[in-house]
Amino acid sequence: MYPDDLKYSKEHEWVRMNGNIAEIGVTVFAQESLGDVVFVDLPDVGTDVAQFAKFGEIESVKAVSDLFSPVGGKIVEVNAAAIDSPEVVNEEPYGTGWLIKVELADASQLDDLMDSATYQPTLE
């Protein structure tokens, strides 16, 4: 449910590092709380986002939530599949349902995030 190789924020986003590129999505807990995801609104590639700042919105049939970036930096890629077929966020939140990739500005920001073992108890 909460892979060990990811880092987690208290707003229920996850980060996967590949070199200095941070891949970002929402956790199983987030997608289950939302229910069927019907729309994601993501920023333009090339824009900057600050750590813990809002970068988009995610909608289910009857709820809308802000998306907050667990790390700051320049957005280098957004997931077109999640925009075209938002159900992938429900189906594979850690895989094809990722949302944005950010070029990490400051690696020390990762220290502000939780590992799986720390994140899971916060869900109870």
Partner: peptide, 9 residues
């Protein structure tokens, strides 16, 4: 597309 509307947003 009800999330545009006042009762949700």
């Amino acid at each position: 597309l009800q999330t545009r509307e006042q009762h949700i947003r």
